[in-house]
Computed example of a mutant assay.
Amino acid sequence: MKLKKVFALTLAACMSASLIAGCSSGSSSSASGGAKVVKIGVFEPTTGENGGGGFQEVLGMRYANKTHPTVKIGGEEYKVELVEVDNKSDKTEAVNAAQKLVSEKVSVVLGSYGSGVSIAAGQIFADAKIPAIGASCTNPQVTQGNDFYFRVCFLDPFQGTVMANYANDNGAKAAAIITQLGDDYSSGLGSFFKTAFTGLGGTIVSEEQFQTNQTDFKAILTNIKAQNPDIIFAPSSITTAPLIIKQARELGITATIAAGDTWENSTIIENAGNSAEGVVLSTFFDEAEPANEEAASFISGFKAYLKDNKQDEIIPAVSALGYDAYLCALKAIETAGSAEGAAIRDALKDVSIDGVTGSISFDENGDAKKDMAFIKTIEGGKFKFLTTTTVK
């Protein structure tokens, strides 16, 4: 059923019911044929700088909706309808997208890829008493001081420390850091790497920043080359990554190039070509190591789903996280026995599931209790699992 039709029917039902009891702030409603509907918002970028990664996250959510299309509330079965908005990888557009989801009366929101847009929309969801479940937004500020925001991924302090540990364990003594000015994910992760790396006795020999939409990094990379680092840590978007990688290799830089979870995207390999060989990154999931039966089922089913949708059959970690965020939302709705946001928020605090990316429950901040990351490299034009690591 088309979204506009559902919304029109919901609005008509509310206007009619308001003569007697007023319209509920929840999103449960009766669709044509008597089916009951609960709406889940998908707050993701499908265009802009992070559009590629955001779309991968959306695919995981869509697949979860395909395999788990209903939810029981108080013993009655409701159809789950996804209401998707594009926050366009932009903080201002994120506010508009969030307000659209509020107006659509969704019960819970999933997303977003990109910490900056998640932070920008956080207060809007909190004011509307609609809980949000982030999939891969790793900056601590996403949930900080917002008891309506949760997430199923690990955080940047953990991820930055994990990558610093990896660098140290592999003999790196000097590191350079490249971050994007004004980007919460990039600057935050770079800062956490710096703190952890220097704490292990390493030296930061160069810190460089670049502007959004910048395409020429040769001046930055020339400065770095002069300092001869063992490793370059450059957390950035999948749009920027291949440019940095290719230009570094063209300048003859041989240092290991490393980043965080955003770089686990096949478009980086396609665009950087042979220059991507040896790149190292941290991520949340590895399809070669299913954590449980849910993960094993997801891997086989999602590969077929990707093929049907003419997508690369390599499973991105963010797709798995998007799937897990959806499962957490369903569990919270069932536990609450309600489509009301505040009740779902309260239920989320005690939710525990065995998801595709492992067991998921939330701490007092709404952050997932996770203590392990996967380290991968690019070898032979493919992502290759290296090791798992935890914080020392």
Rank of each mutant, 00 (worst) to 15 (best):
M1N: 08
L19R: 12
V37K: 12
F43S: 02
T46N: 05
G52H: 09
G54P: 07
Q56S: 10
Q56R: 10
R62D: 06
A64K: 01
K66A: 13
H68L: 15
E76D: 12
E81C: 03
D86V: 07
N87C: 11
N96Q: 07
A98K: 01
V102R: 00
S103C: 15
V106D: 12
G122F: 01
G122P: 00
G122A: 15
A126V: 12
A128F: 06
K129Q: 15
I133H: 03
G145V: 14
N146D: 14
F150M: 13
A164H: 03
N170I: 05
L181D: 11
S186G: 10
S187M: 13
F192M: 13
K194G: 05
T198C: 00
A219R: 14
I220S: 13
I224A: 08
A226K: 09
A226E: 05
I232L: 12
S236C: 15
S237K: 00
S237P: 14
P242N: 10
I244D: 06
K246D: 07
Q247T: 04
A272G: 04
A272L: 01
A272Y: 09
V279Q: 06
V279H: 08
E293Q: 11
S297L: 06
F298T: 09
F298Y: 02
K307S: 12
K310R: 00
E313P: 02
L321C: 05
E340M: 10
R345Y: 05
G355R: 04
D371H: 14
M372H: 10
I375P: 07
